[in-house]
Design a binder for these strands. Structure first.
Lengths: 231, 231
DNA sequence: TGTTTATTTTTGTGATCACATTTTGAAAAT
DNA sequence: ATTTTCAAAATGTGATCACAAAAATAAACA
């Protein structure tokens, strides 16, 4: 215990320590390198990133607000364990939230941004062809984010990011074991619908993208996956 | 500046200072006693609640994650100003989120909890009859919260709370000026639908409750309200 | 050998301090 | 009167320390 494996991360000049700590921990949680159930210590993290408790505490508070960490009664902090129920809850929320985000983006979308979406989608296809899973996952998120942030009023996106983060640890594991995730690509459908400014069709494409991808798992498959992940 | 008016708040034994600071600031923001645009200082808050910067900073980080505060480039912290666009965005998100929360609660609802909902609704009607606006607002939230928390898996509720908090400052002002908000009561409809375990009807009642209440404002009415609020 | 008790270590928490940056307010110059 | 310049105050930030509670380890007992 105590020896936390945190990959170093690029730190732009002028970035505060607490923000850096937040980014680095977030990244670690997203890729599942912090095992759920394992308790995190403030001093341990501070030491691992060569800083002090104060900024680390701020980062931990933010992450717990974002649902990425859970504070126990003992005041211990850990990455919450995934369960089949929680997983299904997160998926259904993700679907509703992202459909709504997509709808609210449509009136603000420009042809230029749609082109950018097409570009990201191509890059993702490349990554999939190269079997570069990590990049593919990142580009998939980039696609969705680029769509939703067409809306200048950003109140939904932080919540979508929160759901992604809570799903993150399992998502990484799932990609290791399941090929199904790569076969789904409704992005072309979404792009076509966007060109027509057809809100319903965009929402339908996003919904399909989620439900046929990670969200397509039935309960037995999820439980099997959780067993594989050793949780 | 600097002299922050923070109403004292009951502090249960064993509650940490940063959690207390969070609760107290949250409460102040929710009722609109911190003017949007006015910048908050860490030392000012620490002094106002007779503590020190460290726990206050943790509270501020949490609140900014919850969308209640915005951190500017200068690292200044303030309650975000409301605009008509942001308001409409928040309302539509609230509707979508709470309809979903309601649907996901239905399978877990018990008769006992429905009785509790009926009780809360009666208390709210009393408060309205007494023209006790603050209590009515609190009881309305309590009604919605009691419904959604029937679902044992709590991933949606924090997001609903976040939306409430972002809407909070204006909500308080709106209740001062607009009688319309009191006339809406779709709670009875929701209760009837719950007794029948009719998900669609429950969602419809919640949607109506939101859209005919605070959400029923058209853009001109909102802009007028914002003017009244002096923002 | 297994359980309980005592001691040591670890950990979260909150206050304080020093430093760098920003903001503010006064003084000087145009 | 308006703008510019400069000093003083305020502010965010991060490290350090002391304290109390919790956890882990060692010792004593059954």
């Amino acid at each position: 215990m105590g020896n936390l494996a945190l990959e170093p991360l690029d730190r732009p000049e002028g970035m505060t320590t607490h923000e850096y700590a937040h980014r680095r921990l977030r990244q670690a949680i997203m890729v599942g390198s912090i095992r759920p159930g394992e308790s995190l210590t403030i001093r341990g993290i501070a030491e691992a990133m060569e800083s002090s408790p104060t900024p680390v505490r701020e980062a931990l508070r933010r992450l717990s607000s974002e649902g990425a960490l859970r504070v126990l009664d003992n005041r211990r902090i850990m990455v919450p364990r995934m369960t089949a129920d929680r997983f299904l809850e997160l998926i259904s929320l993700r679907s509703v939230l992202e459909q709504h985000a997509a709808r609210r983006a449509v009136p603000h979308i420009t042809e230029r941004r749609i082109d950018r979406l097409a570009e990201i989608d191509r890059a993702q296809d490349d990554a999939i062809a190269r079997k570069d899973k990590a990049t593919a996952l990142l580009l998939n998120q980039e696609f969705h984010r680029t769509l939703y942030t067409a809306n200048p009023e950003q109140v939904i996106m932080p919540m979508v990011e929160s759901v992604w983060l809570q799903l993150g640890p399992l998502l990484g594991i799932a990609m290791e074991h399941v090929e199904q995730l790569y076969l789904v690509d409704r992005h072309q459908e979404a792009i076509a619908a966007l060109r027509k400014r057809d809100e319903d069709a965009v929402a339908a494409a996003i919904d399909a993208d989620i439900r046929e991808g990670i969200g397509g798992f039935e309960r037995p498959a999820i439980e099997n996956l959780l067993r594989l992940a050793g949780q």
